[in-house]
């Protein structure tokens, strides 16, 4: 059916060559304020949460308004000064009267509170736990109390699956200096295993991000229990680019998404649970159908509970392979971590 949508879109585009476009003003109703939660907990790492709010569709989008979307409480003021906001700018932000974020490991009842923290990568500000780290095969509950409302969600960190083999394929169009990575891993026998792929190039990225092109989540519905091969993994996309420059039609976008020789790459294969998978699946479907006038828009499935909340609380069971792409386009495995 994706093909059908593609076909339908092409047909529509064909007609558009002899259609007209006009700018119009659209009067949209005032939106219901909603809390947006992006919270994750990975194996052996502190859980973290980004909290933002939604905004009007036509509201201006500039770096200041992005920060205005952040949910902040008054304890964050010194951090805002540290990032570089002036007093006048800080006075424009909305501060929450009540903001308490906790994560509970359900198997042990250990609770940790998430505190505001500056993060070296976009969105540069989040709430991080100081002591708790994710343990494989455990479940975690996130609780947020924000201005009198309570929100919560539960996720699990499934047992990670190791990368069985990894290789580099060069792209002949780039004289063998750029290419993609492929991995192979063995899917456990029970049905219902879901995976996500991220990568991080040392010296270029500050954290694990999704590949630039292609899919980044996989499920085992058709090849359950088999050896799953995932080829054509492209280099992660860096969101900073989006915020720093305009779309450059001259740039070679395909090349931007390829790994280069002599780089050190961390490939992360994560296992995720069903609800976490449903979130990313609906997120990519939404992006694929958004704006297409011929398909009803797909909404994003959230595993969070509470009134007027969007987003996800997801666990990742991670397996990281650190590799060096050598001159001869082979991969030298430096280490692996899980």
């Amino acid at each position: 059916m994706k093909k059908t949508i593609y076909i339908a879109t092409v047909i529509i585009l064909f007609v558009i060559i002899w259609s007209c476009e006009t700018d119009i003003t659209v009067d949209l109703p005032t939106p219901q304020k909603k809390l947006v939660v992006e919270g994750f907990i990975e194996s052996n790492n502190n859980p973290y949460v980004f909290l933002t709010k939604n905004s009007g569709y036509f509201d201006p989008v500039d770096s200041t308004s992005l920060y205005k979307m952040l949910i902040l409480d008054s304890t964050t003021i010194p951090m805002l000064e540290q990032i570089g906001f002036s007093q006048t700018e800080i006075e424009l932000f909305e501060f929450a009267e009540e903001l308490i974020i906790t994560v509970t490991e359900l198997e042990t009842s250990i609770i940790d509170t998430l505190k505001p923290s500056i993060i070296p990568y976009f969105p540069f500000f989040g709430y991080v736990a100081s002591s708790m780290t994710g343990n494989n095969n455990n479940s975690y509950k996130l609780d947020i109390n924000y201005n009198g409302s309570h929100y919560f969600g539960t996720t699990t960190i499934p047992e990670p699956v190791p990368i069985d083999s990894i290789w580099f394929t060069t792209d002949t169009a780039y004289a063998d200096t750029l290419g993609t990575i492929g991995i192979r891993f063995i899917d456990p026998p029970q049905i219902g295993n879901f995976y996500a792929i991220h990568n991080m190039v040392e010296g270029e990225h500050l954290t694990f991000l999704k590949p630039y092109f292609g899919i980044s989540i996989i499920d085992d519905r058709y090849l359950n229990g088999d050896t799953l091969k995932f080829t054509g993994i492209t280099k992660a996309q860096d969101n900073n680019d989006f915020f720093e420059g305009e779309f450059d039609p001259e740039a070679d976008w395909w090349a931007e998404g390829l790994f280069s020789l002599n780089s050190i790459v961390n490939i992360r294969l994560s296992t995720i649970d069903t609800e976490h998978f449903l979130f990313w699946n609906s997120w990519s479907r939404h992006l694929a159908t958004d704006g297409n006038p011929f398909v009803n828009p797909a909404s994003i499935m959230s595993n969070l509970h509470g009134e007027n909340v969007l987003g996800v609380w997801g666990g990742y069971g991670t397996y990281i392979e650190r590799v060096h792409i050598t001159d001869s386009a082979t991969l030298e495995i430096l280490s692996n971590k899980h």
Binding site: N54, Y57, W283, L287, D290, P293
Partner: peptide, 28 residues
């Protein structure tokens, strides 16, 4: 009638459109 977005928010660095009720907007 058509369904238009009423708000937007960010998720994983992507701008996400939040849609209003089905067919709540009327075109010219």
């Amino acid at each position: 009638t058509t369904t238009l977005p009423v708000a937007r928010y960010m998720l994983d660095g992507e701008i996400i459109s939040e849609y209003g009720y089905r067919n709540s907007y009327r075109m010219e």
